[in-house]
Design a protein around this nucleic acid. Structure first.
Lengths: 195, 195
DNA sequence: GTATGAACAGACCGTCAGTCGGTTTGTCAA
DNA sequence: TTGACAAACCGACTGACGGTCTGTTCATAC
């Protein structure tokens, strides 16, 4: 039971990889299952054997994107012991991750509409948002923000960072926009957490 | 040329009204043109005479929603002469407007995916965002934020308010969530603008 | 009265997501 | 070795949907 399982895994991963490219380039609606099938050279039956539907394929793609972004964040703050510095570093890393068209189109634009806002945020909760809240709880313990603000501010901070990332992405002058955006993000952090 | 024009206007407005209800209840993807046609008791030809496509119908719906939200905001700050108070009032009014399912589903969830983030923000620019930036320029003139932050902070503030609105909307206990959310919005404003 | 064009009607078309009855093929127990 | 089994895969088919196209109606202008 190994060759079969391996083959199935390979097909599944191949589909996710191909779909990632197409979803990024043409968006969810602009990408037909037909196109994925052709690009991956896989049959309809095979795809629907691995995924119950188009949205499940999208969810799988989203999952791998999360994995990558999470890994980048974890690598960036590896070994840091000051939580405040780690938070700031993680936020800047996230903005830089969001420069990637895959992250932008899949995570920020299509995900809320495809999965629904609720499911989207629940997914986030278990990943990025959860860690952000932990960091803010630390700030609350230090008396920098009121404990009751932790949840709202975590969401506000994430949404604000996402917005900055999108602004940078669509700017004409990428380099200067990135510099200004990252400075703005730092400023936002200072103000939000009462430096 | 009056009876005809009036009739056309009426049909158009009727379609927009019916579509608003369906888009709100079932989302953009969950609403078929067929369903709009049936609910409005209008023929395909009539609909496609007034709108080049489904996304144009959505854009028209979005437009009327903007109109309503803008009017609510304008009414709320009518006659106020302190720009800081007006800004705060407008922000809270916006959060309350976003309690409306129409605003949530159409403006916040579907619009970015249907129109694309770029077109969505450009539409916002001409409406809410423009006024927000004007208010922040005022804050910058008072030395509360750096002039270079105006654009980024306006976006961050709007995104943050939207996020708070969505959190309130999906909360189990609406009343207490609204109270906490509005307090958080006030706190956010204080911190962002360096009270 | 006749020409004009906006408003509307509805049959029709191509595309797409998803279904379903098969076939292939690796695995394992007898 | 073989035969049962199930995972993996195949592709024709279905129904729904967005959009097109060829008319038809009718208020208005001249």
């Amino acid at each position: 039971m190994n060759k079969k399982i391996d083959r199935g895994q390979a097909t599944r991963e191949h589909l996710v990889a191909v779909a990632t490219g197409l979803f990024t380039e043409h968006g969810y609606d602009g990408t037909s299952i037909e196109a994925v099938l052709r690009a991956a050279d896989v049959s309809r039956g095979a795809l629907y054997h691995h995924f119950p539907g188009k949205d499940a394929l999208f969810a799988a793609v989203l999952d791998t994107v999360y994995d990558r972004v999470e890994a980048e964040g974890a690598r960036a703050i590896e070994g840091m012991d000051d939580p405040a510095v780690a938070l700031r570093t993680a936020c800047l890393t996230w903005i830089r991750s969001a420069a990637d068209p895959v992250v932008r189109q899949v995570m920020l634009i299509d995900a809320p509409a495809v999965l629904g806002w609720q499911r989207w945020r629940e997914g986030d909760e278990a990943r990025t948002l959860g860690k952000l809240k932990a960091a803010l709880r630390f700030a609350a313990a230090e008396g920098r923000i009121a404990p009751i603000r932790v949840d709202f501010f975590a969401h506000v901070l994430l949404a604000g960072l996402n917005e900055i990332a999108m602004l940078i992405a669509r700017a004409e002058d990428q380099a200067s926009a990135a510099a200004e955006g990252e400075a703005a993000a730092g400023d936002l952090l200072d103000r939000l957490l009462g430096k």
